[in-house]
Design a protein around this nucleic acid. Structure first.
Lengths: 202, 202
DNA sequence: GAAATATGCAAACATTTGTTTTAAGATTTT
DNA sequence: AAAATCTTAAAACAAATGTTTGCATATTTC
C-alpha cells in the first residue's frame, strides 16, 4: 500500500502550483518539482488521488486536474456600498479576488468596499472589504446588504437586519445612528448576507 | 481596431471557465463556447489580452493562461495569539492559506488567529485572523505582534506599539486594559507588523 | 471608390502532454 | 526462499492543443 502521506504531499504540491501559476501542473511538472523520475509514476499518483475522490481529472485533457473543493474561490469585487449610496451594478467591475475557501467557504460570494462608519460597533470599519454570500432571505440578527427604495430613504446599505412589529428594521451598529425602517417595505431587496471581511492596514 | 467589449467578453468567458472547471480553457474550448470559427482567432484574442496586460500566458504550454489579479500569495497559519499566550512556533502547523495579492501584497507574511478582546477598539475582534508581515522593527503607531519575557509579563501579543520616555509601550486598544511596558525591554522581539485581517461571520 | 489596414477563417504544422507498455527492483505473502 | 504483489522507471506512443501561414472578407483611410 502506498503511503497516504506521499499522496497528500502530491496533492499539496498541486494546490501550491495552482495557487502560484493559476493553472494546474502537468505530469512532467510534477516529476521535475517532486523528484519523480517517470511520468508514469506521476500519472499513477494522479489516478490514485482521483480514485480517493481527492482530485478531479478530465481524461486525455492537458493540465485538466482540479483539486476537490479547491483551496481558493474567486469572488468579484462589485463596487462600493455605504449608508445610502447605490452599488455599482456592473459585474466584474473591479476584477476578481481569490479567497481562501478554508476561510470563507465556497458558494456564490462577491466583495464590496465599505464606505462609512455605520457598522463600526460590529467591527466593520470604513475601508473594509466585505465578503457577501448571495441570498435573498436572511435571519434576524444577520448582517446583510440590502437595497430599498421609498420616498424617505433609498439605496444599498450594510446593516444588521431585524424584524419588529412585522416590519424589517435595518439597524446600524453605531450608537450615533438611528434604525432605518423603510416606509415601502415591499421595496426591500436583500442582496446577500455578510459572511466575512478583508482589511488592509498600514 | 478591435472592440474592447469583445475582448472583455472573452476575458469574462475565461474567468467563468476557470470558476467552473478549475483550469483554463483551450483555444478550441473558446471557439466552441464563443462561436469563434478558427483557433487562430481565439489565439489572437488571447495575445491581445496579453498585450493589454489583462491576461498572463505561458507560451507553448497547454491551458496555460491565468487572469491577472487572480494570482494569490500563500501564507501559513502559524497558530493563535492572545494577550499573554505564546505562539505555537511550528511552521506549516495549520496549513497554508491563499491570500489575494491585490489585497495584501506579496512578501513574507503569515497568519495568526486572534484570541481575546485586547484590540477590539482597533476593530480586531476575538476570532479574527490577522495577516502579519515579518519584520523586526516597527514605527510608532504600528500594530505589531511582539514577544517579550520578563518577570512580570511574558508571551506573544498583538498590540499597538509606541515609544515613550525611551521605552517601548505595548498599547491595547481596549479602554479596560492597561498599557504594557515590559520591565526587560531588551527581551522585546517584534515578530511582524499587522497588515491586514480576515474574518468569518455567521 | 480605391488603397490600405484590420479582422476572421481554414488548414496544416509543431509541440506539449496524457497514456500505455514493458520491465526492473522492492515489499509482502506463502 | 520462492511466489505474488506493489511500486517506480524508461521509453515509446497517441492525442490534445498551441502556433503559423496564406487567403478571404470586412472596415477604415485617403
Amino acid at each position: 500500500m502506498l503511503k497516504q502521506s506521499k499522496l497528500t504531499e502530491v496533492l499539496e504540491y498541486i494546490n501550491r502550483y495552482i495557487d502560484e501559476n493559476g493553472f494546474p501542473p502537468t505530469v512532467r511538472d510534477m516529476c521535475r518539482d517532486l523528484g519523480i523520475k517517470s511520468t508514469a509514476t506521476a500519472y499513477d499518483y494522479i489516478n490514485r488521488l482521483k480514485e480517493q475522490g481527492r482530485l478531479e481529472k478530465a481524461e486525455n485533457k492537458k493540465r485538466a486536474v482540479a483539486v476537490r473543493g479547491g483551496s481558493s474561490t474567486r469572488a468579484p469585487l462589485l463596487g462600493t456600498v455605504n449608508a445610502g449610496q447605490p452599488i455599482l451594478p456592473v459585474e466584474d467591475n473591479e476584477g476578481y479576488f481569490p479567497l481562501p475557501s478554508a476561510q470563507f467557504g465556497g458558494g456564490d460570494v462577491f466583495l464590496l468596499n465599505v464606505h462609512g462608519d455605520s457598522m463600526i460597533e460590529a467591527g466593520i470599519l470604513n475601508g473594509d472589504r466585505i465578503v457577501v454570500r448571495r441570498q435573498e432571505t436572511a435571519d434576524d440578527g444577520d448582517i446583510v446588504v440590502a437595497m430599498f427604495d421609498d420616498g424617505v430613504n433609498e439605496g444599498a446599505t450594510v446593516k444588521r437586519l431585524f424584524r419588529r412589529d412585522g416590519k424589517i428594521v435595518l439597524h446600524p451598529e453605531n450608537a450615533a445612528l438611528e434604525d432605518i425602517i423603510p416606509e415601502n417595505q415591499e421595496s426591500i431587496m436583500i442582496l446577500g448576507k455578510v459572511v466575512g471581511l478583508l482589511r488592509s492596514m498600514g
